[in-house]
């Protein structure tokens, strides 16, 4: 019997799973208050908030709504809002 040890899968392949479906509260960024300190980007456990054309925008395909970004924002520029679908 042939025994194959281990299995290879593609890198970064969890991208096919959109964890945004877990979310109850959605982060809304008030860009006028943002000082671009990028703490939200650093702390985000999903790694799903990045600068898009100079503004920090959460990728709602993956954001689980954990609100770490809102809590750590020194200017309170991120608000967690109940998401209704």
């Amino acid at each position: 019997m042939e025994v194959k040890a281990g299995k290879l899968v593609d890198p970064c392949s969890t991208r096919i799973t959109k964890t945004g479906a877990w979310r109850t509260f959605v982060p809304v960024v008030h860009h006028e208050k943002c000082i671009k300190c990028s703490l939200c980007e650093i702390y985000c456990p999903e790694g799903c908030i990045h600068q898009v054309e100079g503004l920090f925008v959460p990728d709602l395909d993956y954001c689980k709504g954990c609100s770490v970004c809102a809590h750590e924002c020194p200017r309170k520029a991120i608000e967690m809002v109940l998401e209704e679908k």
Binding site: S13, T14, K18, P45, C48, H50
Partner: peptide, 25 residues
């Protein structure tokens, strides 16, 4: 191109510190 070397879509709890640790490392 990935911005971080840990891709989103992983199944860690919302608000878990472990993925943030991996990202920083």
């Amino acid at each position: 191109m990935e911005k971080s070397l840990l891709a989103p879509g992983h199944r860690a709890c919302a608000g878990c510190a472990m993925p943030t640790t991996i990202k920083l490392v």
